[in-house]
Write a protein that binds this DNA or RNA. Sequence first.
DNA 1: TTGTACGCGTTATCAT
DNA 2: ATGATAACGCGTACAA
Lengths: 339, 339
Amino acid sequence: MEDQSAKKDNVTVQDVAREAGVSASTVSRYLTGVTGVSKIKQEAISRAIELLNFTPNVLAQSLKTGSTKTIGIITQDLGSPFFGEELKGVEHAISGTGYALLIVSGHWQSREEKDHAELLIGRRVDGIIIFTTTSSDKQILALSRQVPVVITGRRLDAMPRALGLAVDNELAAYEATRYLLSQGHRRIAHICGRLGQPDAEERLQGYKRALKEAGITVDQRLIASGDFTETGGVLAINQLLESRSPFTAIFAANDQSALGARLGLYRRGIRVPEEISLIGFDDLAVSNYMLPPLTTIRQPTFDLGRLAGQTLLSMLQGSTTPVVQPQFELVKRESVRRI
Amino acid sequence: MEDQSAKKDNVTVQDVAREAGVSASTVSRYLTGVTGVSKIKQEAISRAIELLNFTPNVLAQSLKTGSTKTIGIITQDLGSPFFGEELKGVEHAISGTGYALLIVSGHWQSREEKDHAELLIGRRVDGIIIFTTTSSDKQILALSRQVPVVITGRRLDAMPRALGLAVDNELAAYEATRYLLSQGHRRIAHICGRLGQPDAEERLQGYKRALKEAGITVDQRLIASGDFTETGGVLAINQLLESRSPFTAIFAANDQSALGARLGLYRRGIRVPEEISLIGFDDLAVSNYMLPPLTTIRQPTFDLGRLAGQTLLSMLQGSTTPVVQPQFELVKRESVRRI
DNA sequence: TTGTACGCGTTATCAT
DNA sequence: ATGATAACGCGTACAA
């Protein structure tokens, strides 16, 4: 990682100044790129920095300037492929800007999310990005009085202090169900997301609306509980099968649920899509590797993260570019068949 | 997130001291829990803190004490389920300790890993954890002269400055191949990991050793290149099939490769395990949801992260508990059949 | 263009 | 037990 010199890491601007034969403030000016340092001294300072292997102490800088060049991220589950992809998006957005990411997770607990938000505030992050918050809009707004906040998974506009980025979940779920309908399915089951979370609720609503508009009465026995996890998916299959209400298709609230459902079906010897059609939501990287590859509603997950990062960055600069909400897209693969 | 009071966030120990009618140093003593603050003043300070909604400025604390209570993490890919699980382990290890995680990624580029390591150093992290480093032992050792380092995916013992945690990759790969052999397979293919990475190389060696010991000459046409990704897995299948050298089983260097291989096989109409047996490495959460569920070598991924976190923490405290290296385990599921 | 002096918010040393 | 004072490393108004 490092090279030759035995660095003591105690080197300060003072040391550099002494070595270069200038004052500390001149070194500071050189560092911050402010106007007015003569060519000769610039080179002397540059050499001294090289020689002493000097690295500015970011803490001292932050203490002085009030900016830590750090963005706090609250995710609900560090192991989730969905949040992982969003994380990559943010990372991409801030790469090269000198910003760093302080990452915590709320584990779907409002209390933990709140505590961790305070941890981030205590560390004086310049802004916070929350992936799928478990808090209410009101709480987010309160938080945003302390520091700019961008959330994903829920729409919200309180610029320039807070912004929520999300696809239209209700409409997307409506479209997913409509697609199943268009393929001749009439008895369509739904595996819910984590109820209580707006995105899960909205997807359920979209599902119901599509059914109603098609003149189909919603059958409660075809609505299985879930929690956005694979395990929840297999449990939902059990629930659905035990209800003894027949169905030919399933709309899962997310791909992870769909993956679990797929295994549950496999265990019972039920073929997809021959006997049951399956559609998911998110389009995770692995969904294309499922057997059969999963038909799903694509969320631009990476872009969602990138957009969140870019937006927060521009909020920090005070610029106020109008943001466009991300759009979903139906990705037709092989897990749905016409009947 | 927040509650009532309109906090101005400029509140310092000075303000608290004034409000409580004591000196700043007494407030500091109260904060750090050092001996010697009278009950009466303790309560006065406590009240003042509550009233002013005071939060200590961690930056100033760090500047003064020299410890940032922050651990830097270098991962290669934030979206990877493997690293995600390790991350959760670290998170678990540090939860409740007051430490926070500054996370960057190297994207499998040595150069980027080095730059990001320096970013972390510049931010004065107390220690660094690297998931599957792309650097040489020598470089790791150099880095460890600046700050304690724990790496995973490769064994290394340079306590108390640096430690590498990993399962015995060569042995694990040997066992995986032996298992295939025990099931009657003689023509076994291997999908490599990212060659150049010690863990990938060691797995390849273990595969070869098992073959040789069984009196089977290694067929280069059955060794396909890969890079630990799903895409690499499907590409490897193409490569293997084009070589026209028959095989009845595949040992993939990791589960992601196995997942890609599974899709590649599916595309060609080749059944698993009826026609081809498949074994992976890692035991990702999704591997249990593959069709058929994947037989694989289980790495205690979460525990690897947890162990890394715990070890680093104890290094920071100067304590030197001897660490035990993590162990792998063969998980038999349904992707391998006896022939 | 350059240097001096001061302050960011905290902790630690030293008296008292 | 408590308070005044210095110091952590840096940026910046001000003066030169």
